[in-house]
């Protein structure tokens, strides 16, 4: 229990973030400070770094370690059908409305290891819309995208995911979507066939298409208010009229000047672009 009190100062956090921007072009300066500092401290302790100087040197000179650093300071915790009520609204309200379009383009921003992309794909399949949908699932972090592309998740999670699925209005046998392979559940290739996994950095990259639905859940919480506004504008530029924007359960459009162009779907963190 006796933990060592590893201390990295706020100034040292700024130094690391400055290095990342200067040497690698990754801009984390608009991230919420408490969260990013916690992630850095966690990694520092996890890798038993001997000194700040050594830690910094390694990040700046060892490409493999730099990758690990970016992977570890961004949060990649996700699950299938997280917040089942949200997915129920997608199933019952949002996606049927989009079903009238000849091609449904969906952007899942900050998709991490892909659990939500596969969840959306399952609902689209059950609504008989998958064949005419495209899900662009993006993340800043290439390592998680590689994992997402494999479509394999821990078997130990399946009980929870199956319960979430049922609560979200799913009526099929959830296990019909994957084949069990020792400790892993491999999801069917059909579900993956309409998902495009690709890197995209919400901080620095531009809009790349127009969508009818953008999902970005539990990503904005890691950004400060200014960066949140910037990213919400990016979503606004990328969303067609009458398209939907879905945020995480503790995130909101309320503080954005864009709010007046949107109408909230009652009871959910989903907004429809009305003008």
């Amino acid at each position: 229990m006796n933990q060592e009190l590893v201390v990295i100062s706020d100034e040292q956090v700024e130094i690391l973030l400055g290095d990342l921007l200067e040497y690698y072009g990754y801009d984390f300066t608009g991230y919420s400070k408490a969260s990013i500092k916690r992630r850095i401290l966690r990694l520092y302790g996890l890798d038993k770094q001997l000194s700040f100087a050594e830690f910094r040197y390694k990040i700046n000179n060892d490409t493999a370690y730099f990758k690990r650093f970016v992977e570890q300071i961004t949060v990649n915790v996700t699950e299938m059908f997280r917040d089942p009520g949200f997915f129920k609204t997608l199933r019952d309200t949002v996606l049927p409305k989009l079903g009238t379009y000849p091609l449904i383009r969906i952007w899942l921003a900050g998709c991490s290891t892909g659990e939500e992309a596969y969840s959306v794909s399952i609902i689209l399949k059950e609504l008989n819309l998958l064949h005419k949908s495209l899900i662009y699932a993006t993340d800043i972090n290439p390592a998680v995208l590689e994992k997402a592309g494999q479509g394999m998740f821990a078997m130990s999670q399946m009980k929870q995911y199956s319960e979430n699925y049922i609560q979200s209005g799913g009526t099929k046998d959830f296990s019909s979507y994957y084949t069990a392979n020792y400790s892993l559940a491999k999801f069917s290739d059909e579900l993956k066939s309409r998902i495009i996994f690709s890197t995209h950095n919400l901080v620095s990259d531009h809009s790349f298409n127009e969508f009818q639905l953008i999902l970005c859940r539990n990503v904005l919480i890691y950004f400060d208010r200014d960066l949140q506004h910037k990213v919400l504008s990016l979503f606004d530029e990328s969303l067609e009229g009458l398209g939907y924007l879905a945020l995480g359960s503790k995130e909101t459009l309320d503080f954005s000047p864009l709010a007046r162009n949107y109408k909230r779907v009652p009871g959910e963190k989903i907004w429809r672009k009305v003008s």
Binding site: A34, V77, N218
Partner: peptide, 21 residues
């Protein structure tokens, strides 16, 4: 504190939420 998030305190004495491990 809301369920399913960690509640963190920022230097400017505001809250931030985090859904890490």
């Amino acid at each position: 504190a809301p369920s399913d998030y960690h509640t963190l305190i920022e230097k400017d004495r505001s809250f931030s939420l985090d859904c890490s491990e």
